[in-house]
């Protein structure tokens, strides 16, 4: 059996998962909350793109110029109005609220859309592929998404490491009260981080909508994949997350090469192996929760 082909497809699929995981780990890194509605917001963005595409007859990429900022604004407002009230020592309120949001979004989409699978199309690009040596065909779009993920992760790590906003984010993550004393409002930092995460989730939602199909409830699976990538990679490390996403992608595609129906189970099992034997992930850094 030729494993080189699923290996490469899996690495590229990892790019998509890394794109998802980046926003999730950004929100956790800054506010210590896990947004259980994260995948549903991606699906919401994909539906939003579909509506804009159908209404304005433009390509999904052009629609993203409207949808991504709209999602970022939504994230900002959501953080200031609802999520901010759930922050505290206990993770319980934020989990309960985001789980509630997840149910609301899924059922709103069911009410106004339909339960069937949808897909975004970029015309010829979705199916175009280039042929590498050893007769391996690589889809142009997955390759583009993989490169995009690397670019976005680079920008994110540059922003957190070098810019003033990044320094504030790290400071708030360590000690919000002290940052407040220095005259910077932590709520503003939180809301901006959420806005960035929501902008990212719009991009990820579009990518997932082109690469695979989606329906109102497919957000749960996206959340789970992003979560698995973060844990395999190790909490608090962006490049670890990319590594984790690639391992998850490879586990799924190689698993599918052996047993076509077991793609998702194979990914879950590799995740559980990591949890059992490498609980701190690839980067082996301990991060307080």
């Amino acid at each position: 059996m030729n494993l080189l082909d699923p290996l490469i497809q899996g690495i590229l699929l990892g790019g998509l998962y890394a794109l998802f995981a980046a926003g999730l780990s950004l929100m956790f890194g800054v506010m210590r909350i896990v947004n259980l509605a994260y995948g549903d917001f991606a699906v919401l963005a994909a539906y939003g793109t579909l509506i804009v595409v159908n209404a304005a007859l433009i390509s999904p990429l052009a629609a993203l110029l409207i949808v991504a900022p709209a999602m970022a604004v939504l994230g900002y407002i959501l953080q200031r109005t609802i999520l901010q009230r759930t922050l505290g020592l206990s993770p319980l309120p934020s989990l309960l609220v985001t789980f509630g949001l997840s149910i609301i979004i899924q059922n709103l989409l069911l009410m106004f859309g339909s339960a069937d699978q949808k897909r975004l199309s970029l015309g010829g690009v979705d199916t175009a592929s280039i042929t590498l040596p050893f007769d391996i065909r690589v889809g142009v779009f997955p390759l583009f998404i993989f490169l995009l993920a690397i670019v976005i992760l680079s920008i994110l790590s540059w922003v957190t490491a070098k810019t003033q906003y990044g320094r504030l984010v790290r400071a708030v993550s360590d000690d919000p009260a002290t940052v407040d004393l220095q005259g910077v409002n932590p709520k503003q930092i939180y809301a901006l981080a959420t806005a960035i995460a929501f902008g990212l989730v719009a991009i990820a939602g579009l990518a997932a909508g082109v690469q695979t199909s989606f329906n109102p409830t497919s957000g749960s699976m996206l959340l789970i994949f992003a979560f698995e990538a973060v844990i395999i990679g190790g909490l608090g490390s962006l490049w670890g997350t990319l590594g984790g996403a690639m391992i998850l992608g490879v586990a799924q595609t190689v698993g599918a090469a052996f047993a076509p129906a077991q793609q998702i189970l194979a990914g879950h099992l590799v995740f559980l192996l990591f949890l059992a034997f490498l609980p701190n992930g690839l980067t082996r850094r301990k991060v307080r929760a």
């Binding site: 956790f28 210590r32 909350i33 896990v34 947004n35 259980l36 993770p91 934020s94 989990l95 789980f99 749960s220 959340l223 789970i224 979560f227 698995e228 973060v230 844990i231 909490l235 998702i264 189970l265 879950h268 099992l269 995740f271 559980l272 949890l275 929760a289």
Partner: peptide, 16 residues
């Protein structure tokens, strides 16, 4: 796993 990650972890186990 702790907090929110515990939550998603239990979900993954249920899926498995």
């Amino acid at each position: 796993l702790v907090g929110g990650y515990f939550a998603v972890g239990t979900w993954v186990v249920a899926e498995v």
